[in-house]
């Protein structure tokens, strides 16, 4: 049984927390440890994701990337850890967060239309009985239009392709009008057109002063998509601006020598020089 241990911050930890530049931080995590039935998924992870930028969480399979997001959002329990979102507690910051889970985590056979799913994003605004106004519907169609799905609004979600399903999830996040977007593998198994549309939407969000954090698996696109990277493999490996942090050294530490070699060759034509 996992027990949620409240972390007693020591004075030193408090100082460390303050040392992160608070006003510039979208998400700050301190000493996050997660364990599933005895197996450690994350160990004492500290992280700091800058505001108004696009950040990638990178690491091999089983490195705890998704667990990190779920623990941050308190979807799954953590053994220890302190999370600050825009310098607020998770509870205070909820209305500023939009989460896009992995597409494969739900049953798409559920009896709902595309529009139904997007409308779920309005729950926090509407509550139990809030009346769905024409303005809400218009917002829902606008969100669908941004991801190129407005013409499929009344389609049963089970009839969508993987990429279309992912775009519906993004539309549901858009209508939440959040400040921080957390996406779990948004580009996994989607078609090229969907990837293009989604990255355009996310970059537009960034231009509109939103913060985006993606669990990402495709190393080839890291440089062109993200301006901040966070390397993780159970423990934190490195974090910082993509330009200075997305290096062969960090890839090697994160993925291990053998796995990293193939990636690095693709990414750095001069990798052989570095390895030698």
């Amino acid at each position: 049984m996992l027990i949620n241990v409240a972390l007693n911050l020591t004075a030193r930890d408090e100082r460390a927390m303050n040392n992160y530049n608070r006003s510039k931080s979208a998400l700050t995590v301190l000493d996050l440890t997660v364990s599933y039935s005895g197996k450690t998924a994350l160990f004492s992870v500290d992280a700091n994701f800058p505001i108004e930028s696009m950040s990638a969480i990178i690491g091999p399979n089983g490195a705890g990337k998704s667990s990190f997001l779920k623990a941050v959002l308190n979807i799954t329990p953590s053994l220890s850890g302190k999370v600050k979102i825009f310098d607020m507690s998770l509870k205070q910051a909820r209305e500023h967060i939009a989460y896009v889970p992995q597409r494969t985590s739900i049953d798409w056979d559920f009896p709902a239309s595309v529009l139904d799913v997007v409308k779920m994003g309005l729950y926090r605004e509407l509550g139990l009985f809030g009346w769905l106004t024409t303005a809400h519907l218009k917002a829902a169609y606008e969100a669908l239009d941004r991801v190129g799905m407005a013409n499929l609004a009344n389609r049963q979600i089970g009839q969508l392709s993987g990429g279309q399903q992912q775009r519906v999830f993004l539309a549901r996040a858009l209508i939440q009008n959040a400040k921080l977007y957390l996406l779990d593998e948004p580009f996994a198994g989607v078609d090229a057109a969907t990837e293009r549309i989604m990255i355009d939407v996310l970059k537009e969000l960034k231009t509109n002063c939103k913060s985006i954090i993606c669990v990402h698996h495709d190393l080839a696109t890291v440089r062109s998509y993200f301006d901040h990277v966070f390397f993780i493999n159970i423990e934190k490996v490195a974090e910082g601006p993509t330009a200075s942090t997305f290096t062969p050294e960090n890839l090697r530490t994160t993925y291990g020598e053998r796995l990293a070699a193939t990636h690095i060759e693709q990414l750095h034509p001069d990798a052989s020089v570095i390895t030698a």
Binding site: K70, L73, N74, K91, R94, I97, S105, M120, Y123, R172
Partner: peptide, 17 residues
């Protein structure tokens, strides 16, 4: 609404509180 949302997507439901 809560029943529908949490049945469809539990993780999302949790993040909306």
């Amino acid at each position: 609404r809560p029943l529908k949302i949490s049945t469809f997507d539990e993780y999302f439901a949790r993040t909306t509180g």
